[in-house]
Design a protein around this nucleic acid. Structure first.
Ligand code: FES
Ligand code: FES
Lengths: 132, 132
DNA sequence: GATATATACGACATTTTTAATCGTATATAT
DNA sequence: ATATATACGATTAAAAATGTCGTATATATC
C-alpha cells in the first residue's frame, strides 16, 4: 500500500532525463524507453498525457519528440501526482461520499486528518527538487 | 495510488471503536463487523494479526473478544502500517535492490528522498491521535 | 509524392494485488 | 454436551495496475 504507480515512476524518469540535457533538445519516447528499459508504448502514453497537461511539449514527425515546457519549480508533487493519477486520497471516501459505511463510519475525520498531512507534504515538494 | 488498504481501514475502525468504551471491555469481531458493515472473517483475521503484534489482546471462548493492550500513544502510524502491511515504500526498490532498471535508473535517490519524507511524516503521528 | 519515423489514442489483454470466503481446529463459558 | 468465540491456512473472487495492439495523423527526408 501507499505505492506510487509505474506511470508516475516512468514520468519522473523521463523528466529527469530531459532535465539532464539542453532544455530545447527533443527526446523521443523510444530513446528514453530503450535507455531505461521501460515499455515504449506505455511511456509514450504517459508522455502524451504530460503533453496534454502542459508539462512537456510534443513535436511530431521524424526527428520529433518531447521537451520540457513548464517551470518544474512551479509544479508541486501533489499537482503532478493528481495530473497523472487523479485526486490524491488515502481512501476513496476522502472525496466521494459513496462509502460503504453510510453513516456508521467512525474514522472518517481522523483519516481526513492524516490525508491532509500527506497532501500537504506533497504540496510542499516541487517537481524540480525530484528531477534536478 | 498512495491508498491504504481495507485491512488497515478495518483495523482503525476496530481500534477506534474499542477506544470509545471502557478499556477492559471485550468486543467480539462479530460485534464490530455487524456494527460497521464490514466482512466478519476478514476483520477477524486483522484483529488476530493485531493480537499477535501485541496491539490488542484476545480472549477466547464465548463472551470472549478483544481489547486494547498497547499504549496507543507509543505506537507510530508508521509502525502500525508496517506491522499490518510490511515495509513502507512508495516503490519496491526502496528496500530490495532487485529493481528492473539494474544500473540505469536515474530517480532512485530522489524517490528515496520523497519516501523518507513520507515515512517521517507517519513516524511522527501516533495511533492514539487517529483513534481517539 | 512515396517513405520512414514520430506522436496520438482508444480498445483490449495480461498480470498483480487486494479483498473476501471457506474449511477446520481450538478454547471456554454455560 | 453445546454454543460461541478466536486461530489460521487455503482458496476464490474482484479490482487495479500494467502492458500490448491496431490504427490514425503529422512531418522531415529523399
Ligand atoms: S471508511 Fe469511508 S467514510 Fe469511513
Ligand atoms: S526504479 Fe527502482 S531503482 Fe529506480
Amino acid at each position: 500500500m501507499l505505492k506510487i504507480t509505474r506511470k508516475v515512476e516512468y514520468a519522473l524518469i523521463a523528466l529527469r532525463h530531459m532535465q539532464s540535457n539542453p532544455l530545447d533538445k527533443l527526446t523521443s519516447a523510444k530513446e528514453i524507453a530503450t535507455l531505461y528499459g521501460i515499455p515504449q508504448q506505455l511511456l509514450a502514453k504517459t508522455l502524451q498525457q504530460m503533453a496534454r497537461d502542459g508539462i512537456i511539449e510534443a513535436v511530431q514527425g521524424p526527428a520529433g519528440g518531447y521537451r520540457i515546457l513548464a517551470k518544474l519549480d512551479r509544479i508541486s508533487l501533489k499537482d503532478f501526482f493528481e495530473k497523472l493519477e487523479g485526486p490524491l486520497g488515502m481512501m476513496d471516501c476522502y472525496f466521494d461520499s459513496d462509502c460503504i459505511q453510510i453513516g456508521a463510519c467512525n474514522i472518517r475525520i481522523p483519516i481526513q486528518r492524516i490525508n491532509d498531512n500527506m497532501r500537504n507534504m506533497f504540496a510542499q515538494m516541487t517537481l524540480q527538487e525530484v528531477t534536478q
